[in-house]
Design a binder for these strands. Structure first.
Lengths: 276, 276
DNA sequence: TCCTTGTTGTGATCACTGCTCTCGTTGGTG
DNA sequence: CACCAACGAGAGCAGTGATCACAACAAGGA
């Protein structure tokens, strides 16, 4: 199988040939990424890549056995990039500021997506290669999800989550629902109750839903500046999951003037949420 | 501009030729839709369409001046289909059961999406034709959004919404945020306060976020049965928007057993939410 | 050192695509 | 009837992904 050539079963020796191969593979991916960033995945052309690198059009098949394999490599890199952005944003927060970590991860994902819209579309838009994600994408794909899950599960482990006391009751989940998310809880939320895991999934998919709407033009001529809407949605969803309010950079008490707002004055709740 | 040919500037007479033209246009779209449903939009081939219809490959350009125009026509049809599904589900509910209407619309959208995954991807995945949606798609695209907005705005008009009394305070939205959604409120939520409009956007994008994750394989090997998760997320988001609980088909009182659940027992709230 | 082996780059080639052009044919209209 | 615009068919162009045989060459063992 030719795929093994670039998938790790390389000759163990670090000879001249192996180094040249690694270098050219990187150059091909770099040029392909440039084309995807410029024109989108659907107009990525292997021949154009080889032209830019000054090689014969058939030579590229020594490195990537098909166009889909090259795209898969780009997908893996994109997953890794967004995962790294999320992890770094998380690591920059105080570990016990779970609300702040949630917002930081969400905003890091959105920032990366806006900076790399075509790579976002490659990964979270319609799957371009034959509808079936290769196995080697699941690891990098899990990275960003696990970054979020660590925040939720950490808060749950510390007893800061659970059903928010202000929330009216939903019925307990039945057996079907519990079974449906059993492996999810096993993999990502071992310390969280099932209801929290479902809210986390809702919040997480909400994040990608609003980013997709923004990047794919569904807000065109309707919401011109998405940032404040996104920030507030991120806070609302974090609150739904049950996070304590984020500390914020300055830790300032919110300048809430309930009378001037259209919000209903809360009944005897002293916990105050405010924008970061 | 050739686009006028199929865009309405047809000879006013309803002669034999015009009827043939309309018939063939419909046949082309039907065959193209069949191909998209089978293989996805990226592998839609004009020549394959013409082959299936037994015509010369060049003849199709008399009806659609380019591949993108054919795809745009399919996009318009898909928008109309999902919009119609949402409207019909809404119309089947009692007009004052806003919680039930919200859930019905959401489930209708998901059902249509699962039944037509490639058409969903065509519309809500990465935009395939050159990143810029033609103007004639915005009308059909608004249809499903307005169906949802009517539910939210109707509930707000009847005074059933607003900030839920159980919700801890978020600060009022500042000028930037209010300006960002001014046109949105104008177009879709004239009777709703800004905070409700933002929650509606969050809930709406959450719906498409979870559907996209399901259809595009991001739940693969993590959540095998999405239905119960989706149903519960729909309820949670409807509650976040502020809808009263859905009446349900039987109107039965929920068989809630708080002790057996991992939910925290609510403090003195008598309103009960339950699954439809 | 030589010789075998496996990897690499090249050009030709195939099947296919979107799209354009020309050239007869035909339906609708004056 | 005569004219014209719309139509269908076919050839052709430029471009694509992919395969093949062939030549050049590095790597490693005898």
């Amino acid at each position: 199988m030719l795929l093994e050539c670039h998938a790790g079963v390389m000759p163990p020796s670090t000879g001249l040939r192996a180094r040249m191969r690694a270098e050219l593979t990187a150059e091909i991916k770099e040029e392909a990424r440039r084309q995807v960033a410029a024109e989108g995945a659907s107009s990525l052309s292997l021949r154009a890549v080889t032209r830019s690198l000054g090689m014969a059009s058939s030579a590229i098949y020594r490195y990537f056995p098909s166009r889909d394999d090259l795209l898969t490599a780009l997908i893996v890199d994109a997953y890794d990039a967004v995962g790294q952005a999320a992890e770094e944003a998380d690591a920059a927060c105080p570990p016990d500021d779970f609300g702040g970590r949630w917002c930081a991860v969400g905003q890091a994902v959105r920032s990366w997506s806006i900076a790399n819209p075509h790579e976002y579309a490659l990964v979270y838009g319609s799957p371009v290669p034959g509808y079936r994600a290769p196995q080697d994408t699941v690891g990098p794909a899990s990275r960003v999800t696990l970054a979020m899950a660590r925040v939720v599960d950490g808060a749950a482990r510390d007893g800061l989550l659970g059903n928010p006391s202000w929330s009216p009751p939903l019925p307990p989940m039945d057996g079907d629902a519990l079974g449906a998310i059993a492996t999810l809880i096993d993999l990502a939320f071992p310390n969280a109750p099932a209801e929290v895991a479902v809210r986390a999934v809702a919040a997480w998919t909400q994040l990608f839903g609003i980013i997709s709407f923004e990047l794919f033009g569904h807000f065109h001529n309707v919401i011109d500046e998405v940032s404040p809407v996104f920030d507030r949605a991120l806070l609302e969803m974090g609150r739904l999951v049950g996070f304590p309010p984020p500390l914020g950079t300055a830790g300032r008490i919110a300048d809430v003037a309930p009378g001037a707002s259209s919000e209903v004055v809360p009944d005897g709740e002293d916990e105050v949420w405010f924008l970061v």
